[in-house]
Amino acid sequence: MKLLGNIVWFILGGFISFLSWGILGILWSITIIGIPIGRQCFKFAKMSAAPFGKEIRFSDSGSSLLINIVWLFLGGFAIVIEEVAMGIVFCLTIVGIPFGMQHFKHAKLALLPVGSEIYRTR
């Protein structure tokens, strides 16, 4: 079921999230200082291509707070707005609610990407 959900997800708009995270990863990786954030963006691009069966664990440490604040102003808000808008559009139909919930999960991830981890569920 996860495989079918991921295929339909990618066709119906998951590729937009994938491209957005990938482009931001490339832009962050242009500078040496931004490479760690760019690597995070590439991990999240991979996750946004096939999100079903994966969960996100957010960090409790305060050490990544400053980097997350910089991230919000240099790319995070654009991803948040995109993901929330797509989540609302998908939630307008009953069939699209699981896809909308994935977009809302990605919006939360776009708010706090540094220190977050992706892990597989069973």
Rank of each mutant, 00 (worst) to 15 (best):
R39M: 15
S116G: 02
L19I: 15
W28L: 04
G75N: 03
A45C: 11
V84S: 03
F99M: 11
A78V: 13
R120M: 11
S64V: 07
L111S: 06
M47T: 11
E55H: 11
L24W: 13
I35N: 07
P36E: 06
S20M: 13
G76W: 01
E83P: 00
L112F: 15
F77R: 02
G5E: 06
F42W: 14
G76F: 00
F73K: 04
I79A: 10
K46M: 13
P51N: 07
S29L: 14
G22L: 11
I94R: 07
F58I: 01
I118C: 11
N6Q: 05
F52H: 10
S29Q: 11
I33S: 03
L3M: 12
L4W: 10
V114M: 14
G53T: 11
S59H: 09
W9A: 03
K43W: 08
F15K: 07
L74H: 01
G100N: 00
S61D: 15
I118R: 02
I23W: 10
I56P: 00
A50C: 14
T31H: 08
S61M: 05
S17E: 06
G87I: 01
I23V: 15
W71N: 02
P98K: 03
G53I: 09
V114T: 08
A50Q: 12
G38I: 10
S116Y: 04
S61F: 10
I79P: 00
R120Q: 13
S59E: 10
K108E: 11
L74S: 05
L112R: 08
V80S: 03
S48Y: 07
G115E: 07
F73L: 15
N6E: 07
V8I: 15
